[in-house]
Design a protein around this nucleic acid. Structure first.
Length: 478
RNA sequence: GGUCCCAUCGUCUAGCGGUUAGGACGUCGGCUUCUCACGCCGAUAACGCGGGUUCGAUUCCCGCUGGGAUCACCA
């Protein structure tokens, strides 16, 4: 049994959509699990919309997600090139072969002629569905018009069925007479999606095509192309669609749909993948996975067929599980993500980052949130929230700060547990509730009314800075 | 409209003939508490409808309804 070869074939016509990421993920997982090969192919035949900038973004985001490819752009491989526009020779060779064998034919009909026919039909029967009338279907080389542009169409069978056994949806069968004589190659020699895709999957030795259900309609066409080429098709597995909240196509109006947006929001990449894998796939009641666990457990047979609706709240909950657990994001990875999120503070002492980790792990849902929540530790002075300052530093509530400062000056060791004991004892003896002392102190030290535990903060800040900030707060009030 | 696909809580899902229909997110209570979180406990809520098959259907079959995909010299 040869090793599976899988692929992800995005077109660089825009950002990397999370729906595409899920498709890539399923293929990647299967390649990793089986020891197979994951191929990245760029389908850039839409010259109008494809850009190298988009391709760069796609490559960069896939790497950020950890979905590294074994063969593809920037990597090479034995089946290259991996951009369709660099494979034009191959398509030409295959299309000529099909024309020679009679499986395809030249069609000299112009866009204008087609448009006229379409319009005529619309007038005579508005409900009818226009199909290519087959003007050139039964002609041969003797009818060819020299010096005139032509497309190449597939001569599809008029009877019978085309079917396959879908890895997810099971036995499928489509009547051939519903399939038009589709255009394989445009008049400029560039192949259309179905032809480029089939030829590439064939010549790249792809054994399993995992893709969205929106492509299921294309599968019979591609199967017919394989048949015309006299080649065995790969296996196909279609994934249910990821739709928007209301059941419509998932788009920008539903919030973030590009990977870049999630990266910028500080969502951990594996958390995003974890959410996506559970969309249309399940493993009993388990919903949180480490990547090795996922590679081990993933299987096409557990894929469901029903379309689903994207839920950003659930995504954030799954991502949060990753943020909390060191088994998902180890301390080193967390610290390094934090360091880049805090880059505006210049070079940061890594020991400080490690030290705050325990206090932010259970709180932060994203790396951006994590960075924001500890800015007090890295800024020169607390960035006071105006309302918090007014309420806790300027008003009556600030009263305990002076005495607290006096107490802390006498503390020999700035260790959370000892500070807590000392402050609690003192507060009790002086008729303060701990909250009466903690809130103004919190604002004095962090600038905010919410933060990790007060005594953890004092220990992290250290004696000198803690005392300086409390002193500054006391002086604020005059 | 043609072709194809789908159908369990609001959402993601478990279930593969007999279950008090399970988990998670969300929502609502409560506990914990120096704030914010975390955590813990509890509650809420689903088998679209109608026929079969069967001793018995959420589960198998058919129809209906509802949703979706697609019908380009886009991918």
């Amino acid at each position: 049994m040869t090793k599976p070869r899988l692929r992800f074939a995005p077109s660089p016509t825009g950002y990397l959509h999370i729906g595409g990421v899920r498709t890539a993920l399923f293929n990647w997982l299967w390649a990793r699990k089986t020891g197979g090969t994951f191929v990245l192919r760029i389908e850039d035949t839409d010259r109008e919309r494809s850009t190298v900038a988009n391709e760069d973004v796609i490559l960069r985001e896939l790497r950020w997600l950890g979905l590294e490819w074994d063969e593809g752009p920037t990597k090479g491989g034995a089946y290259g090139p991996y951009r369709q526009l660099e494979r034009l020779e191959i398509y030409r060779e295959f299309s000529e072969k099909l024309v020679a064998s009679g499986a395809a034919y030249r069609c000299y009909a112009t866009k204008e002629e087609l448009e006229q026919a379409r319009e005529a039909l619309r007038l005579s029967d508005p409900k009818a569905q226009f199909r290519y009338p087959g003007w050139w279907r039964d002609k041969g080389p003797t009818d060819w018009l020299s010096d005139r542009p032509y497309v190449i169409r597939l001569r599809t069978p008029k009877s019978g069925h085309t079917g396959w056994n879908d890895l997810v949806f099971g036995e499928q069968r489509v009547p051939n007479d519903t399939i038009q004589d589709v255009v394989l190659v445009r008049s400029d020699g560039v192949p259309l999606y179905n032809f480029g895709c089939a030829v590439d999957d064939l010549t790249m030795g792809i054994t399993l095509v995992g893709r969205g259900r929106d492509h299921m309609i294309n599968t019979p066409i591609q199967l017919l192309i394989y048949e015309a080429l006299g080649s065995a098709p790969p296996q196909f597995g279609h994934l249910p669609m990821m739709l928007g909240k209301g059941g419509e196509k998932l788009s920008k109006r539903h919030g973030a749909v590009s990977v870049g947006e999630y990266r910028e929001q500080g969502v951990p990449p594996l958390g995003l993948l974890n959410y996506l894998v559970r969309f249309g796939w399940s493993f009993g009641d388990q919903e949180v996975f480490t990547m090795p666990d996922l590679v081990d457990k993933f299987d096409w047979s557990r894929t469901s067929r029903a379309d689903g609706k994207f839920d950003s709240l659930k995504l954030s909950a799954i991502a949060f599980e990753h943020m909390k657990g060191a088994e998902f994001i180890d301390d080193e990875a967390y610290v390094s993500a934090l360091r880049s999120a805090l880059s505006r503070y210049g070079d940061i002492d890594e020991r400080k980052l490690h030290a705050v980790l325990p206090t932010i792990r259970p709180r932060a849902k994203t790396f951006v949130e994590a960075a924001e929540s500890v800015d007090w530790l890295f800024s020169d002075a607390p960035n006071y929230d105006e309302k918090a300052k007014e309420k806790f530093l300027l008003g009556e509530k600030a009263a305990p700060l002076g005495p607290l400062l006096q107490l802390l000056v006498t503390q020999p060791k700035f260790v959370a547990a000892e500070l807590e004991l000392a402050v609690k004892t003192w507060a009790e003896a002086n008729g303060y509730g701990l909250g009466d002392v903690a809130q103004p102190a919190r604002v004095a030290l962090t600038g905010r009314t919410f933060s990790p535990g007060l005594f953890d903060i004092m220990e992290l800040l250290g004696r000198e800075i803690t005392l300086a900030r409390l002193d500054a707060a006391v002086r604020l009030r005059g």
